[in-house]
Amino acid sequence: MKDYQLGEFEEIVLLTVAILHGDAYGVSIKRDIEERLQRTVSVGALQTALRRMEDKDYLHSTFGESTAKRGGKRKRYFEITDLGKQALAYSKETRNQMWNAIPKTVFEFSWL
């Protein structure tokens, strides 16, 4: 089984790209994460994660249109690849397995 390395932030970014399906570029991804998770994201952190995952083939990018606000610079749209989907699935699967492995009593106890 292939080892899918996925950090916490990376996973969030990957999920957001999937959520924004077709409209995922730097600014939109950043805004979505900030709104959804109520946390600030720096361009640096985001870009590093995007590029790293592109290198790992979880993401694929293409240049899109440019706007006046961007000073004529093109957007780079990100798309999740099949490998990226597998990585997300694998990540979710392992979490679920782990959730399931927790004895019920742990939660009950904590509820008390």
Binding site: G26, V43, F63, S66, K69, K75
Partner: peptide, 16 residues
């Protein structure tokens, strides 16, 4: 190779 879109993103957000 990253410069264009990163710079664009920054400018877009800056004006936003």
């Amino acid at each position: 190779q990253y410069l264009e879109d990163i710079q664009g993103d920054l400018e877009e957000e800056f004006y936003d």
